[in-house]
Computed example of a mutant assay.
Amino acid sequence: MPMSHIPDREIAERPDGYGGPNLSPTGLRHLPHAFADGVYALMANIPPKDNNGLIAGSRAALVVDAGITPEVSRELQKLAGELTTSPVRYLANTTYHGDHTFGNAQFPDDVVIVTSRANKENMADLAYEKQVRAGNMYGDEAMFDRITTWRTPDLVFDSYAELDLGGRQVQLWHFGPGNGPGDTVVYVPDTRTAWTGNFVCHAGTAHMLLQGGPLPYLDSLRAMRRTLPDLDTIVPGHGSMGDGHAAIDALVGYLERLHEEVAAAVEAGKPLEEVVTTDPWEQGLDPRLAAALSGYGERAQQGMLALCRDLHRLNVLATYRVYTAGHTVETWLST
């Protein structure tokens, strides 16, 4: 599929009554989960607020994502100092979105920020990024008044980069566009764990198509599945940890169905309000996701169910807009 079919920046349109994920850092703390000595998921105590990660070797440590505000960034660095004696030398951005990158500026200048080239290219309009992310702040939009600088990455790669932290290898992969054009996966081979940002979440979770339709996303997911056959666990940017290949397979199935149903509606000349799609959450949360959220209580599970339904409506809208944006449906159906 030609890259020209992918919008230049995130769609700002949202469905009527759309809520979206609550990304406000109010009440947010990060709870360490160890996969091995020096390898930690830093899990948000309130899903779906942002998760992070810490990966340390004998010489250096890497933090996964920077947080949405200076306070979150400082908390992550403090936590890293408590969990490892290795100095933080690297910061990986899994996406360009502000809830993952606005904290970049709070890391010392000698910390090398690394991400895909496409992510850095999308970090060019701070005002627009604050505008689209403000809709997920739930009354805390004023926090963005203090975000005046968007520190961009120092080191970029096209499809693959590798870092040696001292006895621990970290792989960074860009498999292609997904939630955004530059999704970056941070993979630690010795623990078979990947930090996936917004690219892949726990099986049964709704994802967000914000820059492009299902087809390029599907290609990227299949590339990840081929490239990381030994993957065990994913730590997504939001929500619970889970089985990596189960998450990929679930999202592939969802995107295939979304593509087929929306493309058929567009081919039939239906307006957006008449597009009918399968509701994967008609019977409630996927049992695997419900089990993963059980420790957070019934309120968290109901909140996630409502969010998944909202995100599905957004995905239908975004896919419809892409499939009717100046090119023929046959182009998509033949891809």
Rank of each mutant, 00 (worst) to 15 (best):
D286L: 11
R288F: 04
T278W: 09
A306P: 03
L293A: 09
E282P: 00
T277F: 13
E282Q: 02
R309K: 15
G295P: 09
L289Q: 09
R313N: 15
Q302F: 13
V275S: 07
L285P: 05
L289A: 12
H312C: 06
A291V: 02
L305N: 01
C308G: 12
V275E: 07
E298H: 07
E298T: 06
Y296W: 11
Q283N: 14
A290Y: 08
Q283P: 09
D286M: 14
Q301C: 03
L311Q: 10
A292H: 10
H312T: 04
H312A: 08
H312L: 15
E298G: 00
G284Y: 06
Y296P: 07
G297I: 05
Q302R: 15
A290Q: 12
D279K: 00
Q283S: 15
M304H: 06
L285R: 07
A292C: 11
W281S: 00
L293Y: 03
Q301E: 04
E298Y: 09
A290E: 13
D310M: 15
Y296G: 06
Q301R: 13
E274G: 04
E298P: 03
Q302P: 14
Y296E: 08
R309Y: 07
T277D: 12
Q283F: 03
G303R: 10
P280N: 10
P280C: 09
A300E: 14
L285I: 04
